[in-house]
Protein backbone atom coordinates (compact mmCIF):
# COMPACT_ATOMS: atom_id res chain seq x y z
CA UNK A 1 0.00 0.00 0.00
CA UNK A 2 2.64 2.49 -1.07
CA UNK A 3 0.56 4.80 -3.24
CA UNK A 4 -1.54 7.30 -1.29
CA UNK A 5 -4.93 7.13 -3.00
CA UNK A 6 -7.75 9.06 -1.43
CA UNK A 7 -11.03 7.15 -1.14
CA UNK A 8 -12.80 9.92 -2.98
CA UNK A 9 -10.59 9.35 -6.00
CA UNK A 10 -11.72 5.76 -6.31
CA UNK A 11 -15.27 5.68 -5.05
CA UNK A 12 -17.77 7.31 -7.39
CA UNK A 13 -19.46 10.16 -5.59
CA UNK A 14 -22.97 8.75 -5.79
CA UNK A 15 -21.78 5.52 -4.22
CA UNK A 16 -19.79 7.47 -1.67
CA UNK A 17 -22.85 9.44 -0.61
CA UNK A 18 -25.26 6.52 -0.48
CA UNK A 19 -22.59 4.38 1.12
CA UNK A 20 -24.55 3.85 4.27
CA UNK A 21 -27.44 2.11 2.60
CA UNK A 22 -25.11 0.54 0.08
CA UNK A 23 -23.11 -1.12 2.80
CA UNK A 24 -26.14 -2.43 4.54
CA UNK A 25 -27.60 -3.94 1.41
CA UNK A 26 -24.81 -5.10 -0.84
CA UNK A 27 -22.90 -8.31 -0.71
CA UNK A 28 -19.98 -8.72 1.66
CA UNK A 29 -17.46 -8.97 -1.14
CA UNK A 30 -18.41 -5.65 -2.68
CA UNK A 31 -18.31 -4.04 0.74
CA UNK A 32 -14.92 -5.50 1.49
CA UNK A 33 -13.39 -4.14 -1.70
CA UNK A 34 -14.72 -0.69 -0.90
CA UNK A 35 -13.43 -0.89 2.63
CA UNK A 36 -10.01 -1.67 1.25
CA UNK A 37 -10.22 1.37 -1.00
CA UNK A 38 -10.80 3.51 2.09
CA UNK A 39 -7.47 2.44 3.55
CA UNK A 40 -5.00 5.23 3.80
CA UNK A 41 -1.28 4.53 4.08
CA UNK A 42 -0.95 7.05 6.91
CA UNK A 43 -3.05 4.87 9.20
CA UNK A 44 -0.01 2.80 9.95
CA UNK A 45 2.85 5.05 10.95
CA UNK A 46 6.13 4.61 9.13
CA UNK A 47 8.75 2.55 11.00
CA UNK A 48 10.85 5.67 11.43
CA UNK A 49 8.02 7.63 13.01
CA UNK A 50 7.16 4.76 15.28
CA UNK A 51 10.70 4.09 16.45
CA UNK A 52 10.53 7.30 18.44
CA UNK A 53 7.29 6.23 20.06
CA UNK A 54 9.04 3.42 21.98
CA UNK A 55 6.30 0.94 21.06
CA UNK A 56 6.21 -1.85 18.53
CA UNK A 57 4.45 -0.79 15.34
CA UNK A 58 0.69 -0.69 15.84
CA UNK A 59 -1.29 -2.72 13.38
CA UNK A 60 -4.99 -3.20 12.93
CA UNK A 61 -6.43 -5.99 10.83
CA UNK A 62 -9.16 -3.82 9.37
CA UNK A 63 -8.79 -0.32 8.08
CA UNK A 64 -12.32 1.09 8.04
CA UNK A 65 -15.60 0.73 9.89
CA UNK A 66 -18.68 -0.87 8.33
CA UNK A 67 -19.70 2.47 6.85
CA UNK A 68 -16.38 2.72 5.07
CA UNK A 69 -14.97 5.44 7.33
CA UNK A 70 -11.20 5.14 7.65
CA UNK A 71 -9.53 4.51 10.99
CA UNK A 72 -8.40 7.54 12.94
CA UNK A 73 -4.63 7.78 13.07
CA UNK A 74 -2.99 5.86 15.89
CA UNK A 75 -1.21 9.03 17.05
CA UNK A 76 -4.53 10.82 17.41
CA UNK A 77 -6.27 7.91 19.15
CA UNK A 78 -3.48 7.72 21.72
CA UNK A 79 -2.63 11.43 21.84
CA UNK A 80 -6.05 13.05 22.19
CA UNK A 81 -8.02 11.62 25.06
CA UNK A 82 -10.37 12.66 27.81
CA UNK A 83 -9.16 11.05 31.02
CA UNK A 84 -9.87 13.46 33.86
CA UNK A 85 -8.20 11.12 36.37
CA UNK A 86 -4.96 12.40 34.91
CA UNK A 87 -5.67 15.76 33.33
CA UNK A 88 -8.49 17.76 31.83
CA UNK A 89 -6.14 18.60 28.98
CA UNK A 90 -6.49 16.30 25.98
CA UNK A 91 -2.79 15.62 25.59
CA UNK A 92 -2.09 15.49 29.34
CA UNK A 93 -3.12 11.86 29.97
CA UNK A 94 -0.66 10.58 27.36
CA UNK A 95 2.17 11.94 29.48
CA UNK A 96 0.74 11.61 32.98
CA UNK A 97 -0.67 8.10 32.61
CA UNK A 98 2.49 6.63 31.12
CA UNK A 99 3.55 5.01 34.40
CA UNK A 100 0.17 3.69 35.51
CA UNK A 101 0.64 0.21 36.98
CA UNK A 102 -1.60 -2.04 34.91
CA UNK A 103 -0.12 -5.35 36.01
CA UNK A 104 -0.96 -6.86 38.40
CA UNK A 105 -4.57 -5.80 37.93
CA UNK A 106 -7.77 -7.41 38.97
CA UNK A 107 -11.42 -6.80 38.24
CA UNK A 108 -13.89 -7.79 40.96
CA UNK A 109 -17.21 -8.89 39.53
CA UNK A 110 -19.86 -9.22 42.21
CA UNK A 111 -23.23 -8.01 43.42
CA UNK A 112 -26.37 -9.81 42.29
CA UNK A 113 -24.60 -12.78 40.71
CA UNK A 114 -24.53 -16.49 41.47
CA UNK A 115 -20.79 -16.82 41.06
CA UNK A 116 -18.91 -13.68 42.04
CA UNK A 117 -15.34 -13.78 40.88
CA UNK A 118 -12.30 -11.56 40.89
CA UNK A 119 -10.58 -11.80 37.54
CA UNK A 120 -6.91 -11.22 37.07
CA UNK A 121 -6.22 -9.24 33.90
CA UNK A 122 -4.21 -12.12 32.43
CA UNK A 123 -7.08 -14.44 33.23
CA UNK A 124 -9.47 -12.12 31.37
CA UNK A 125 -7.25 -12.13 28.32
CA UNK A 126 -6.88 -15.91 28.41
CA UNK A 127 -10.50 -16.78 29.18
CA UNK A 128 -12.14 -14.74 26.46
CA UNK A 129 -11.21 -14.77 22.79
CA UNK A 130 -9.95 -11.33 21.91
CA UNK A 131 -11.24 -10.00 18.62
CA UNK A 132 -10.87 -6.77 16.68
CA UNK A 133 -13.92 -4.48 16.55
CA UNK A 134 -13.81 -1.26 14.59
CA UNK A 135 -16.18 1.22 16.22
CA UNK A 136 -16.96 4.88 15.87
CA UNK A 137 -16.41 6.77 19.11
CA UNK A 138 -18.50 9.93 19.49
CA UNK A 139 -17.47 12.24 22.31
CA UNK A 140 -20.15 14.38 23.97
CA UNK A 141 -17.90 17.33 23.04
CA UNK A 142 -18.90 16.80 19.38
CA UNK A 143 -15.77 15.16 18.04
CA UNK A 144 -15.40 11.57 16.93
CA UNK A 145 -12.91 8.89 15.95
CA UNK A 146 -12.90 5.45 14.33
CA UNK A 147 -10.98 3.04 16.54
CA UNK A 148 -9.92 -0.60 16.02
CA UNK A 149 -10.46 -2.05 19.49
CA UNK A 150 -9.32 -5.47 20.67
CA UNK A 151 -11.67 -7.05 23.14
CA UNK A 152 -14.61 -9.35 23.76
CA UNK A 153 -18.33 -8.94 24.37
CA UNK A 154 -19.07 -8.02 27.99
CA UNK A 155 -21.89 -10.53 27.73
CA UNK A 156 -19.41 -13.41 27.86
CA UNK A 157 -18.02 -12.29 31.19
CA UNK A 158 -21.47 -11.66 32.63
CA UNK A 159 -22.69 -15.09 31.56
CA UNK A 160 -19.80 -16.61 33.46
CA UNK A 161 -20.75 -14.98 36.78
CA UNK A 162 -24.47 -15.62 36.22
CA UNK A 163 -26.52 -12.54 37.14
CA UNK A 164 -29.48 -13.34 39.37
CA UNK A 165 -33.03 -12.44 38.34
CA UNK A 166 -32.85 -9.35 40.58
CA UNK A 167 -29.96 -7.89 38.61
CA UNK A 168 -31.26 -5.06 36.42
CA UNK A 169 -28.22 -2.83 35.96
CA UNK A 170 -24.45 -3.12 35.75
CA UNK A 171 -22.30 -0.66 37.67
CA UNK A 172 -18.66 -0.11 36.68
CA UNK A 173 -15.95 1.59 38.68
CA UNK A 174 -12.52 2.93 37.69
CA UNK A 175 -9.43 2.53 39.84
CA UNK A 176 -9.26 5.11 42.63
CA UNK A 177 -5.64 5.88 43.37
CA UNK A 178 -4.87 9.62 43.62
CA UNK A 179 -1.16 8.85 43.92
CA UNK A 180 -1.15 7.37 40.45
CA UNK A 181 -4.03 9.42 39.13
CA UNK A 182 -3.28 13.02 40.11
CA UNK A 183 -6.48 14.34 38.53
CA UNK A 184 -8.45 12.51 41.23
CA UNK A 185 -7.30 15.20 43.65
CA UNK A 186 -9.47 17.60 41.61
CA UNK A 187 -12.40 18.23 43.93
CA UNK A 188 -14.72 19.32 41.11
CA UNK A 189 -15.51 15.67 40.46
CA UNK A 190 -16.70 12.97 42.86
CA UNK A 191 -14.12 10.32 41.97
CA UNK A 192 -13.91 7.35 41.57
CA UNK A 193 -15.41 7.37 38.09
CA UNK A 194 -18.61 5.35 37.97
CA UNK A 195 -20.65 4.34 34.96
CA UNK A 196 -23.62 2.11 34.43
CA UNK A 197 -25.61 0.22 31.84
CA UNK A 198 -28.99 -1.41 31.89
CA UNK A 199 -28.52 -5.18 31.90
CA UNK A 200 -29.87 -5.57 28.35
CA UNK A 201 -27.48 -2.87 27.14
CA UNK A 202 -24.62 -4.64 28.86
CA UNK A 203 -25.63 -7.95 27.30
CA UNK A 204 -25.87 -6.44 23.80
CA UNK A 205 -23.45 -8.02 21.35
CA UNK A 206 -21.95 -4.62 20.43
CA UNK A 207 -20.96 -3.89 24.05
CA UNK A 208 -17.31 -4.63 24.41
CA UNK A 209 -14.76 -4.99 27.15
CA UNK A 210 -11.61 -3.80 25.40
CA UNK A 211 -8.09 -4.76 26.34
CA UNK A 212 -6.33 -3.35 23.31
CA UNK A 213 -6.43 -1.13 20.27
CA UNK A 214 -4.58 -1.07 16.98
CA UNK A 215 -3.46 -4.65 17.53
CA UNK A 216 -1.69 -4.06 20.83
CA UNK A 217 -2.47 -3.67 24.52
CA UNK A 218 -4.41 -0.57 25.52
CA UNK A 219 -2.18 2.35 26.31
CA UNK A 220 -2.82 3.79 29.79
CA UNK A 221 -4.41 6.98 28.49
CA UNK A 222 -6.92 4.89 26.55
CA UNK A 223 -8.01 3.03 29.68
CA UNK A 224 -5.51 0.21 30.21
CA UNK A 225 -5.67 -2.57 31.05
CA UNK A 226 -9.41 -3.05 30.50
CA UNK A 227 -12.21 -0.65 29.62
CA UNK A 228 -15.77 -0.60 28.41
CA UNK A 229 -16.69 0.35 24.83
CA UNK A 230 -20.34 1.13 24.10
CA UNK A 231 -20.23 2.56 20.58
CA UNK A 232 -23.79 3.94 20.41
CA UNK A 233 -23.35 6.05 23.53
CA UNK A 234 -21.28 9.18 24.13
CA UNK A 235 -17.66 8.37 24.88
CA UNK A 236 -17.85 9.13 28.59
CA UNK A 237 -20.05 6.04 29.09
CA UNK A 238 -17.12 3.88 28.00
CA UNK A 239 -15.45 3.81 31.40
CA UNK A 240 -11.69 3.23 31.59
CA UNK A 241 -9.33 1.18 33.77
CA UNK A 242 -12.10 -0.85 35.39
CA UNK A 243 -11.50 -2.48 38.79
CA UNK A 244 -15.07 -3.28 39.80
CA UNK A 245 -18.18 -4.54 38.03
CA UNK A 246 -21.31 -4.89 40.13
CA UNK A 247 -24.67 -6.29 39.14
CA UNK A 248 -27.31 -4.19 40.90
CA UNK A 249 -31.06 -3.75 41.03
CA UNK A 250 -31.18 0.05 41.01
CA UNK A 251 -30.00 2.44 38.31
CA UNK A 252 -26.43 3.45 39.24
CA UNK A 253 -25.55 7.14 39.48
CA UNK A 254 -22.60 7.83 37.20
CA UNK A 255 -19.93 10.41 37.96
CA UNK A 256 -21.26 12.69 35.24
CA UNK A 257 -24.85 12.33 36.46
CA UNK A 258 -23.66 13.27 39.94
CA UNK A 259 -21.69 16.30 38.79
CA UNK A 260 -24.21 17.63 36.26
CA UNK A 261 -27.63 15.99 36.56
CA UNK A 262 -29.23 18.40 34.08
CA UNK A 263 -26.53 17.86 31.53
CA UNK A 264 -25.69 14.17 31.69
CA UNK A 265 -28.28 11.46 31.87
CA UNK A 266 -27.96 7.76 32.52
CA UNK A 267 -28.51 6.70 28.92
CA UNK A 268 -26.29 9.19 27.07
CA UNK A 269 -27.17 7.66 23.72
CA UNK A 270 -25.70 9.52 20.76
CA UNK A 271 -28.66 11.49 19.45
CA UNK A 272 -28.41 14.43 17.03
CA UNK A 273 -31.93 15.52 17.94
CA UNK A 274 -31.41 15.89 21.67
CA UNK A 275 -29.02 18.76 22.38
CA UNK A 276 -26.91 18.89 25.49
CA UNK A 277 -28.29 21.85 27.51
CA UNK A 278 -25.34 23.97 26.46
CA UNK A 279 -24.15 22.35 23.23
CA UNK A 280 -25.80 21.14 20.06
CA UNK A 281 -25.19 17.50 19.17
CA UNK A 282 -26.38 17.75 15.56
CA UNK A 283 -22.94 17.74 13.98
CA UNK A 284 -19.48 16.53 14.86
CA UNK A 285 -15.89 16.77 13.74
CA UNK A 286 -14.16 13.53 12.85
CA UNK A 287 -10.63 13.85 14.16
CA UNK A 288 -8.29 14.16 11.18
CA UNK A 289 -10.95 15.73 8.95
CA UNK A 290 -11.39 19.43 8.35
CA UNK A 291 -15.12 19.52 7.66
CA UNK A 292 -18.01 18.75 9.96
CA UNK A 293 -20.32 15.79 9.51
CA UNK A 294 -23.85 15.17 10.61
CA UNK A 295 -24.10 13.10 13.76
CA UNK A 296 -25.91 9.80 13.18
CA UNK A 297 -28.71 8.49 15.40
CA UNK A 298 -27.20 6.07 17.93
CA UNK A 299 -23.86 6.93 16.30
CA UNK A 300 -24.83 4.89 13.23
CA UNK A 301 -25.78 1.76 15.19
CA UNK A 302 -29.51 2.47 15.05
CA UNK A 303 -30.40 -0.81 13.35
CA UNK A 304 -28.68 -2.79 16.07
CA UNK A 305 -29.76 -0.92 19.19
CA UNK A 306 -32.91 1.14 18.56
CA UNK A 307 -35.09 -1.75 19.76
CA UNK A 308 -33.53 -1.45 23.23
CA UNK A 309 -35.29 1.89 23.61
CA UNK A 310 -38.61 1.15 21.92
CA UNK A 311 -41.34 3.30 23.42
CA UNK A 312 -38.97 5.43 25.46
CA UNK A 313 -38.91 9.22 25.17
CA UNK A 314 -35.26 9.78 24.39
CA UNK A 315 -35.48 13.49 25.19
CA UNK A 316 -36.54 12.61 28.75
CA UNK A 317 -34.24 9.61 29.05
CA UNK A 318 -31.22 11.48 27.68
Amino acid sequence: MGVPIKPSEITPEAVYISRRRFFRDTARLAAASLILSACRPKNTPSPAADASAAYPAPAATGCADELGDALTDYQDVTGYTNYYEFSTDKSGPTRLAANLTTSPWSVAVSGLVDQPHTFDIDEIKALFDQEERIYRMRCVEAWSMVIPWIGFPLKKLLELVKPTSDAKFVRFETLYDPEQMPGQKNSFFPFPYVEGLRLDEAMHSLTLLATGLYGRDLSPQNGAPVRLVVPWKYGFKSIKSIVKIDLVSEMPVSLWMASGPNEYGFYANVNPNVPHPRWSQATERRIGESGRRDTLMFNGYEDEVASLYAGMDLAVNF
Partner: peptide
Protein backbone atom coordinates in the same frame (compact mmCIF):
# COMPACT_ATOMS: atom_id res chain seq x y z
CA UNK B 1 -13.22 27.33 9.95
CA UNK B 2 -15.45 25.32 12.26
CA UNK B 3 -18.89 25.91 10.78
CA UNK B 4 -17.76 26.71 7.22
CA UNK B 5 -19.89 29.90 7.17
CA UNK B 6 -22.90 27.62 6.89
CA UNK B 7 -25.77 29.86 8.06
CA UNK B 8 -28.05 26.90 8.82
CA UNK B 9 -25.51 25.25 11.10
CA UNK B 10 -24.57 28.53 12.75
CA UNK B 11 -28.18 29.58 13.39
CA UNK B 12 -28.93 26.13 14.80
CA UNK B 13 -25.95 26.41 17.13
CA UNK B 14 -26.91 29.92 18.22
CA UNK B 15 -30.42 28.73 18.94
CA UNK B 16 -29.23 25.79 21.05
CA UNK B 17 -26.24 27.18 22.88
CA UNK B 18 -26.87 30.09 25.24
CA UNK B 19 -23.15 30.60 25.77
Amino acid sequence: LDYEFNPLWIMAELAQKPF
